Amino acid sequence: MFEYSIKENCLTNKTILVTGAGAGIGKEAAITYAKLGATVILLGKTVKKLEAVYDEIIALGLAEPAIVPLDLKGATKQNYIDMSSTIASQFGKLDGALLNASTLGELTPFTQIHEQVFSDVMQVNVNAQYLLAQALIPTLLLTEKASLVFTSSSVGSQGRAYWGPYSISKFATEGLMQVIADEYENSSLRTNAINPGATNTNMRASAFPAEDKEKLATTADIMPLYVYLMSDDSLAVNGQTIKAQ
């Protein structure tokens, strides 16, 4: 695992947006950030799941989170702009954004990739990420120490047979991250990506249904890196894809 000693209250007074916050890694990150003092903004497509995470955070006596129901597959550029403007007006700033939501598509031979599947994966994993980042950057720049974190994969740095759409989308994600990191290198914004590795999530189970889940890292196991990149300890880190395990 990525070795980092999490300090209590290290995210106090930070406002952090988490996409895909209704389940899996996004849910774990949102609750972890809240426990460390942050006010979290929960973005996801399923209101019921977001409300469950909201209730869990409130039950722990933590700062009240905000809920943003948004389906990245159908959201428009204006939706993201409006959301960013609302965050700026309601919170005055945005200290961090974890762009975690992704879709797997299907695992299939390259010559059998369905055009609609490819299009849907690119829409959620690339187009939405670009539009979301574009809209969020002005709000992130309102704070002195902002962190933008993308989510990559092992297949985003080394292509793998049958993983076509997802793999290609994660190569694009890493390129997107690097472009933003380079453009804002001398600003208050740092931009990086996380490769979570093999983790016990529903997406992983759909890709490897016969796998022994007991041998996989849990979402809690990989949180040190997620906290590190949102904390002030990572101020000098920019343009990197880092493995969580």
Rank of each mutant, 00 (worst) to 15 (best):
P65D: 01
T76W: 04
Y166M: 02
V149H: 01
A128G: 03
L36D: 04
T111S: 09
I137Q: 08
T46F: 12
A161V: 14
I58A: 04
T111Y: 08
K49H: 11
R160C: 06
T46C: 07
S154C: 03
K77H: 12
A59H: 14
Y80C: 00
V126I: 10
T143C: 10
T76V: 03
G164I: 06
K77S: 11
I113C: 05
A52R: 13
G37V: 05
L140V: 10
K73W: 00
K35C: 11
L43T: 09
P138V: 14
L36Q: 00
L148C: 09
P65C: 04
L72M: 13
A128D: 00
L142P: 10
R160T: 15
S157G: 12
E144K: 08
L50G: 03
L43F: 08
V47I: 15
V124D: 01
A34M: 11
M83P: 11
L42W: 06
P69Y: 00
N125D: 07
Q158Y: 13
E64K: 15
D120N: 12
F171H: 09
G156Y: 03
A63C: 06
Q123A: 06
D120F: 02
T39L: 12
D120M: 04
L72V: 06
A146N: 06
G74W: 03
L99R: 00
L36S: 01
A97C: 09
T76Y: 08
S102E: 09
A66P: 02
V117G: 04
Q158R: 12
A59W: 00
A97D: 02
V53L: 14
S84N: 12
N125K: 03
D120I: 05
G159F: 13
S152W: 11
L62Q: 02
L142G: 07
H114V: 05
V126Q: 04
F91G: 10
L43V: 15
T151V: 13
T39W: 07
Q116E: 14
A161D: 11
G61N: 10
D55C: 10
A66W: 09
L136T: 04
A101P: 08
G92V: 15
A66S: 13
A128H: 07
W163M: 08
I57F: 02
S169Y: 06
S84E: 09
N79R: 08
D120W: 04
Q116R: 11
E51R: 08
I58H: 00
S119A: 09
L132V: 00
P109L: 13
L132I: 07
L104I: 15
D71P: 02
L98S: 04
A135H: 01
A146I: 14
L50D: 08
R160Y: 14
F171E: 01
S84W: 03
S85I: 13
F171Y: 13
I67H: 06
P65V: 01
I58S: 04
D71S: 12
G37I: 05
G96T: 09
E64T: 15
Q129I: 05
F91K: 15
T151M: 14
M122E: 03
L36F: 00
E144I: 12
A133R: 08
L62D: 00
L94Q: 10
I168P: 10
S119M: 03
D82W: 06
M83A: 01
Y80T: 02
D120H: 07
K145H: 10
T86L: 14
T46I: 14
Q123F: 01
P165F: 05
I168A: 14
S84P: 13
N79Y: 07
N79H: 14
Q116D: 13
S89W: 06
S119H: 09
Q116H: 08
L60D: 07
V47C: 05
